[in-house]
Design a binder for these strands. Structure first.
Length: 695
DNA sequence: GCTGGGTCAATCGT
DNA sequence: CACGATTGACCCAG
């Protein structure tokens, strides 16, 4: 492939060349489109006041917020140890952001004079409105700037309940990385929800929830691995997936919010030179190769000078220079591989593919004729398969590659719109015991909760922010799902639209009723029987599946327990360790702080047996640090409402990862006959937080 | 339902 | 301390 147009960098490049600085873009004044939104709707602020359906004591209580948070998070692996030590700090207590707009919530009226533009001019003339909007935008920008300035002082505020200790901010660990990522996404989801329901006036429109969420975290010091480093990053594992560039910034994997090459200057004896830290290959420069252990990475820099319309060569500076130096030093470089999201074509998924070293570099003629730097990165041996495994999984899904231990293409035999494959590359077992595949609940006639009002009367689909929709009302005014059917937050009960509703079946409030969306497979584990794993990367909050099966009563469960044990039982009356998944309101002080309980409070216990009838959920194993959680969901069918147990992704899940949830613990009183320890299973989840048993 | 151009933006080194 | 090179994420027109 080395042809005439290919020259080795070391031979013929004038490394002293310096690029001409030229602006690539120009800033234009922004005129907000604010007039329509102010005049729309019957209510002055765009939406009517409503009363939360939650119990009153579940509403925000800023007073004890610190303690509450600590308790709520202590259970999951997302709270750094140091963050639990909350010493009194007057700074933290009075750290009030400058509010630059009025909240749309009546009870959250802005009292701060500074930057308060208010909405009292709503009835003024259009010019006045436009001016106010412009001022609002101005204030918004000032706010962000001020946030930036405050970072150094606020960022060190480790006494804040949400902050991270200075030590962990420099060098993280797995727990902290997970905590930061989950906090980021919880806020991002909430911002999307607010934006989609138009609870914010259009001047405050959050076009980029990812950036706003990241800004909130940076201001509060919820970051980790801020020390820039060569090589591996503590707490980040090869194969981890990310859905936004900002996520990688926040956990110190790749410090550039946009740039593909991250580098830093390091000082040696009297010498200072740039070295590369990480590169993101996102497919825009066709740097793909057949061999997944090799990455041909293109240098940065335009090949076309827009000013004088001349073809230019890339210069050996910035990222290119850093890559060159790293090559000479034989430094490790982290590689992040990006691919289009198959579920959401406009989005991208990034996977950390481990450490590489530059083996070769040269200059090639690009399509426009200008010189382009090329770096051949080779993956270091001994690392777990990540990107390669992902690509292989894609081939399996496409059916273009055969595989070891393949038993069945579709275990659901067409019941699911996406096939569920069955594989065993561990031993000779040909498959799990016989059962009937069924997607939902089979319930006795006696079961069901009759509700006075059934179903909404929306025509077409239910729209977020439409408070006339009775289903949205039942959800406390919130639409439970954000774009891409991502669950925004956990609640004791979520109300979906159902067959009784008049909205179309494609209404976005029926996420749990449309079947699985991920490619999954049932596989034989080494020590836990059959398990369920995903072939697709899964975003936090994604619907996975319902726990399908037969609704049974406790008497029947006990009968089963005495004979051969029913291992395929879901029982809501078990004890489930609480964990925090929803957004932390104190990170969104300037926007809105509606909190809902994350406790499981099922009115009457629900027991589902998937022994004879069930879906993929029956294969999900237990873990003490799971990546999936369950959420009760209610909707009406046949004049009755039923609770369904529905699983969602707790965090981002890489392809080929096993899906697990917490089975909970059977209360001693229920372990009828047999003594508690005997009724319980030894846990093989292998997590650091393993309780040792479950069930 | 896809593509392509336009817009606005966070970061860290210069 | 301000600036600028980088190209992501999203939106809307075609």
């Amino acid at each position: 492939m080395m042809e005439d147009n290919t020259v080795h960098a070391s031979d013929s490049v004038d490394k002293s060349k310096i690029i001409e600085a030229k602006p690539l873009r120009s800033l234009a004044p922004v005129v907000p489109k604010c007039i329509q939104s102010f005049s729309s709707g019957n209510y002055p602020y765009g939406f009517p006041p409503f009363y939360s359906l939650e119990k009153p004591h579940e509403n925000p209580i800023p007073k004890g917020a610190q303690e509450t948070h600590v308790n709520a998070t202590a259970t999951e692996e997302d709270t750094p140890v140091d963050a639990k030590v909350t010493k009194e700090s007057p700074v933290a207590a009075k750290a009030t952001p400058i509010r630059f707009y009025k909240s749309s919530h009546d009870e959250e009226v802005n009292t701060q004079a500074d930057g308060d533009v208010g909405l009292e001019g709503l009835n003024g003339d259009l010019d006045d409105k436009r001016k106010r909007c412009a001022k609002n935008v101005q204030n918004c920008k000032e706010f962000l700037k001020r946030n930036k300035k405050n970072r150094e002082t606020q960022g060190d505020d480790s006494s804040s309940s949400v902050g991270i200790s200075p030590l962990l901010k420099d060098d993280g660990d797995r727990e902290t990385v997970t905590h930061v990522l989950m906090t980021f996404d919880s806020i991002r989801r909430r911002l999307c929800q607010l934006e989609e329901s138009k609870e914010l006036s259009s001047v405050l429109a959050i076009k980029r929830a990812d950036l706003r969420a990241s800004n909130a975290l940076t201001c509060k010091g919820v970051r980790t691995n801020m020390r820039r480093r060569v090589g591996e990053v503590p707490g980040i594992e090869v194969g981890d997936v990310f859905f936004f560039r900002m996520e990688m910034c926040l956990v110190g994997l790749h410090g550039q919010s946009m740039g593909g090459i991250d580098y830093t200057n390091i000082k040696d004896e009297a010498q200072e030179e740039p070295v590369a830290l990480s590169v993101v290959s996102s497919g825009v420069y066709d740097d793909d190769t057949e061999d997944n252990n090799i990455l041909i990475y293109s240098g940065q820099g335009e090949n076309f000078n827009k000013k004088d319309k001349h073809v230019t060569d890339q210069k050996l500076q910035r990222g290119n220079l850093a890559l060159d130096k790293s090559s000479q030093r034989h430094n490790e470089i982290r590689v992040i591989r990006g691919l289009r999201d198959a579920m959401n074509r406009s989005a991208k998924i990034y996977m950390y593919d481990g450490l590489y070293k530059i083996q070769d570099s040269w200059i090639e003629r690009g399509k426009s004729g200008g010189g382009v730097f090329k770096y051949k990165l080779v993956r270091l041996p001994g690392q777990p398969s990540a990107f390669a495994a992902w690509r292989l999984a894609q081939k399996w899904m496409a059916g273009s590659s055969s595989r070891n231990g393949f038993i069945l293409a579709d275990l659901s035999t067409g019941a699911e719109s996406i096939p569920v494959s069955l594989v065993n590359d561990v031993d000779g077992e040909k498959g799990p015991a016989f059962f009937t595949y069924f997607q939902s609940l089979k319930k006795p006639k006696s079961f069901g909760i009759v509700q006075p009002s059934l179903g909404c009367h929306c025509n077409k689909a239910c729209v977020p922010g439409d408070l006339n929709c009775s289903c949205i009302q039942r959800n406390g005014g919130d639409f439970p799902y954000a774009a891409n059917s991502i669950l925004v937050g956990r609640k004791p009960l979520i109300h979906e639209c159902g067959p009784m509703c008049q909205c179309f079946p494609n209404c976005k409030n029926r996420v749990s009723q449309t079947g699985i969306k991920q490619h999954m497979e049932v596989f034989k584990t080494k020590n836990r029987g059959w398990g369920l794993r995903t072939l697709d990367p899964i975003r936090a909050g994604s619907f996975i599946c319902e726990y399908a099966g037969e609704v049974i009563d406790r008497a029947k469960l006990c009968r089963n327990t005495e004979g051969d044990r029913d291992e395929y039982v879901f029982d809501t009356s078990r004890i489930y360790e609480p964990f925090k998944w929803n957004y932390e309101p104190s990170l969104l002080e300037d926007i809105s702080s509606k909190v809902s309980s994350e406790d499981y409070t099922i009115p009457s216990p629900l027991i589902i047996s998937a022994k004879n009838v069930g879906n993929v959920a029956r294969f999900m194993n237990h873990s003490c640090s799971p990546n999936v959680f369950w959420q009760p969901i209610l909707y009406a069918e046949n004049n009755q409402s039923f609770i369904h147990i529905v699983f969602f992704a707790l965090r981002h899940i890489p392809p080929m990862a096993e899906l697990t949830y917490d089975y909970g613990i059977v209360p001693d009183g229920h372990a009828k006959g047999s003594s508690a320890p005997r009724g319980r299973n030894k846990c093989f989840c292998g997590s650091a937080k393993c309780r040792g048993f479950f069930g």
